[in-house]
Design a protein around this nucleic acid. Structure first.
Length: 117
DNA sequence: ACGGTGACGAGAT
DNA sequence: TATCTCGCCACCG
């Protein structure tokens, strides 16, 4: 269900997917960050909802989107969270015992991909 | 058309 | 500093 992401008129979802696709491998962004990027800083929840409705075969790197605390949400709820951790670790993102990562180090800033140190 | 929901976030206690 | 509460936005039945 809910596979209206492709060619659908619901632009918000597509904007979210489009934004997430820009996140390079090994970097992460927060829901709120995506919301701001889309022009709706208060739509963080909507962003999460958009990603939630993504089909399993999507090309969108949904796992690169985490919460503002630096950890994945819905953790402990199922394989989804565990899978997200695995995918991120597979890209070099390191998490501590609390399940949080250093956003200052991994957060991707649009247009700032070359700048570092 | 209405109310409830949810992969969030920031401020208040 | 850790927890709790309230507010946001878009979506579903």
């Amino acid at each position: 269900m809910v596979e209206r992401s492709e060619g659908a008129t619901t632009n918000f979802y597509e904007r979210v997917y489009r934004a997430v696709c820009k996140v390079p491998r090994g970097s992460v962004v927060t829901y709120g960050q995506v919301a701001v990027y889309l022009g709706s800083p208060a739509a963080a929840r909507a962003v999460g909802y958009a990603l939630h409705n993504l089909p399993p075969e999507t090309d969108v790197p949904w796992w690169r989107v985490i919460n503002a605390k630096g950890g994945v949400s819905h953790k402990g709820r199922g394989a989804q969270a565990d899978r997200q951790y695995e995918l991120l670790r597979g890209e070099g993102v390191v998490f501590d015992e609390e399940g949080y990562t250093n956003l200052r180090a991994y957060r991707w800033l649009p247009g700032d991909e070359v700048a570092f140190d």
